[in-house]
Simulated scan of single mutants.
Amino acid sequence: MPDSPLSDSPYEVLGVPADADAATLRLAYRRALRSAHPDTGGDPERFHAVQLAWELVGTIEARAAFDRGGRAATAEPAHEAWAPAAPKPRRDSRPQARSYGHPGGLSREVYLSLVREWAGRGVTLDDPYDPALVRSAPRDIRHVLADALAEEATARSLANLGIAYTIWHDIATDAAGRGLPPKLDHLVLGPTGLFAIQSEDWGGPVALKRGELVGEVLGGERPIRALAARAKAIGRAARVKPTALVVVVPDDHAGEPLELGGTVRGAAVALVRRSRLASAVREGLPGSPHLGGTEVMEVRSRLQAAVRFA
């Protein structure tokens, strides 16, 4: 199963329906492989995706395992990574950042509500994260689950910033949201500034252009504008001013590890790959002011008094 609920299934990669017979599937694979082969001018990423798709559904055994939700007969079901993870004991004794709130919690609640409503009244869902169920759900429902996973992944990355940083997750705001109760995914405070962060997974590439995100997958959304409105609402309530507005996406959805997009109301704007986020926060963004120790303590006190969780 793909890593994201929004990722194309192997059948979609090969351009066949999920109930295609073996001969049709094999023919589609050969055609896709020829058209994507780098030696004939094809796209190497597409070529790799076609090969992976065939590994997942190219044999009777692999296809049956995939349709049940796993990658192979002996593999663990891939959707276990989609369900809320059980807490794991820490092996690193270094102090972690102070953290408040429940990252991805609201998005998971909304997903569970939407998927049960979509399934219909009287239908019992033994596993709302079952891969076959998720694959068949409308894109807007899969998008909510993808965002929950993105928020949780960001939280894991930010936790290792160290004791100098404080993090709030799932913060309620009075700004407008996309089909969800209005909230800011993460707010990070430390000596390198006050970062308002939105974790996203649109299922495809995005880029910064003239201070806003662009991409076919956005469907008319204006993420930087929405993030700025949420950050402004929180800043107004706490009488603080965010120094950076950051949208973090899966690594393969951004062309550069860190892309800057000017400023909005004095806050530096950036699109950041997930693997680059922690170092970007530690280093600070170009054009984003650092904060002194006394200022960090004052801002933290104001936020602690004003923050409300979604």
Rank of each mutant, 00 (worst) to 15 (best):
E259Q: 15
H143L: 11
L271K: 08
D21T: 05
R225T: 15
V249C: 10
V249A: 13
L27H: 09
A196R: 11
R46W: 02
A137F: 12
S157D: 14
R302T: 00
S93W: 01
Y129L: 01
A85K: 13
R236I: 05
G220Q: 14
Q96T: 07
S99E: 04
E80G: 09
G41F: 08
I224M: 15
A229D: 14
E76Y: 10
Q198L: 06
S301F: 00
S35Q: 11
A75D: 15
H169A: 15
A78D: 12
T173G: 02
P87W: 14
E109C: 04
R46Y: 00
V269P: 02
R90M: 05
P128C: 03
E212V: 12
L184E: 04
V281H: 09
G262H: 03
L133P: 02
T154G: 12
R68L: 07
V217D: 04
L245F: 13
G179L: 00
A20R: 03
R273D: 01
L303P: 00
R31N: 03
A137I: 10
V123E: 03
G204R: 09
L245M: 15
L56M: 15
D170V: 04
K241S: 14
Y165T: 00
W82G: 11
Y111E: 05
A237E: 13
S301M: 01
L161S: 09
I171N: 07
L213H: 08
R276W: 08
L189V: 10
T40Y: 13
S136F: 03
Y100T: 09
V246C: 11
L106G: 12
E298A: 03
A254N: 06
Y29M: 05
V248G: 06
L258F: 05
E295V: 10
K183E: 06
L56N: 01
R30E: 12
P5D: 11
A244S: 15
R30Q: 04
G193Y: 01
L180M: 11
I163W: 08
A20V: 07
A164Q: 09
R26Q: 13
R239L: 10
R31F: 02
R46F: 00
A83H: 07
G203A: 05
L125E: 02
A228H: 12
P242L: 08
L227T: 02
R139Y: 04
R68C: 04
A278L: 02
V307T: 00
E80N: 13
V188D: 00
T173P: 02
A97Q: 05
G120Q: 10
S4F: 12
G215F: 07
T294H: 14
A226T: 11
A237R: 15
R222W: 01
A196C: 05
G211V: 11
R308Y: 03
D147I: 05
A233M: 07
D67C: 09
A305K: 01
G255A: 15
D127A: 02
E200Y: 04
R116W: 04
P289F: 00
D127H: 00
D174G: 03
L260Q: 12
V264H: 14
A97S: 08
I234L: 15
D126M: 03
L218D: 11
G292C: 13
R91F: 09
Y29Q: 12
D67I: 09
R116C: 06
R91K: 06
A196W: 13
A231H: 06
S9K: 02
K183A: 15
A280G: 05
W118R: 07
S301N: 01
F195E: 06
H169C: 11
S301W: 01
A228L: 06
V296P: 06
